[in-house]
């Protein structure tokens, strides 16, 4: 496996289990959190003499520290037909493995929620730390041909834990913006990292001249186009405008999306994650 994802949380995880991220729990950490009475935190080794002397009520004061906590990492993946285009699927698999490995490396639990037309339990993986189940999931994804729309994304939030989690949202966002807003609204309780997966073949690698018959992968509608430079530019402009619109939509929820137009690489996502945490 290549480089893992260095995701750092700009918020405190509420998980009680120790892990690698800033948490809300007190425990065996390095960072001082507050003083507590000895009765609340019965650890005589941590008695702070200075604080005890200064205490007007004469109680013993004990230092307590932040506990590094774990976090649940989810990957919500759009498994609609359009995600089968070009090498989006292999990107999805690659990212799924990288994310799972990274989460296990941090000691976090990793869950997968695959969204198709309607909920399908075969694409649900509850948070866990078993690499084997991830592997079998990958095999399943490899052999399956994606069909239908991404309407299942609307129900994805129901499968997340109620505690704030880190959610990677991997989709090509080929659905109306209203649906995207609906999805983001349902995910507001979580830390969402949207990865918008586009392929150059759909956006910029278009023929300049010729007749081409396109078939929509999701609703099978066909359209014959007489391609010429003007129309090609028009399509590229439309995608550019779409990118701006999608960005705007995410930003209205306080989220900055990452567009993966070119070749996928872990460095690209790590760069984005660094910017985000800074």
């Amino acid at each position: 496996m290549t480089e893992p994802l260095f995701y750092r949380l700009p918020w405190q995880s509420g998980s009680v289990y120790p892990g690698a991220h800033p948490g809300q729990m007190t425990g065996a950490g390095q960072l001082f959190k507050r003083h507590e009475p000895l009765i609340a935190s019965p650890d005589p080794r941590r008695i702070d003499i200075r604080a005890t002397i200064l205490d007007p009520f004469g109680n013993y004061r004990v230092r307590v520290y932040h506990q590094q906590s774990s976090v649940n990492v989810y990957l919500i993946a759009d498994l609609s037909a359009s995600m089968g285009f070009a090498n989006k699927k292999s990107t999805l698999i690659q990212f799924l493995l990288t994310a799972a490995h990274s989460a296990f490396g941090y000691g976090d639990k990793f869950g997968f929620i695959g969204c198709t037309e309607n909920r399908q339990h075969q694409w649900l993986l509850p948070p866990g730390q078993q690499l084997g189940s991830i592997k079998s999931l990958v095999e399943q994804i490899k052999t399956t041909r994606f069909t239908g729309t991404a309407n299942g994304l609307l129900q994805a939030a129901a499968y997340l834990s109620s505690r704030r989690s880190l959610v990677f949202l991997l989709s090509d966002c080929h659905f109306p913006l209203a649906q995207l807003r609906e999805i983001l609204r349902s995910l507001q309780g979580h830390d969402v990292i949207p990865l918008v997966l586009w392929d150059q073949q759909e956006t910029t690698d278009l023929p300049s001249w010729g007749v081409i018959s396109y078939q929509d992968m999701e609703n099978n509608e066909t359209r014959t186009l007489f391609m010429r430079p003007a129309l090609r530019q028009k399509i590229i402009d439309t995608y550019h405008q779409r990118q701006l619109d999608v960005k705007h939509c995410f930003r209205s929820f306080g989220i900055e999306p990452l567009f993966i137009n070119d070749a996928y690489s872990t460095q690209l996502i790590n760069g984005y994650l660094h910017q985000r945490a800074a």
Partner: peptide, 25 residues
Amino acid sequence: NSGMRLTPNPWLTMIPTDSMSTLLS
């Protein structure tokens, strides 16, 4: 059947309507 080779496209909505293409098809 239009008799044309069908090229899959992820989302046709993104392709603007083009009167010349409509006329041609």
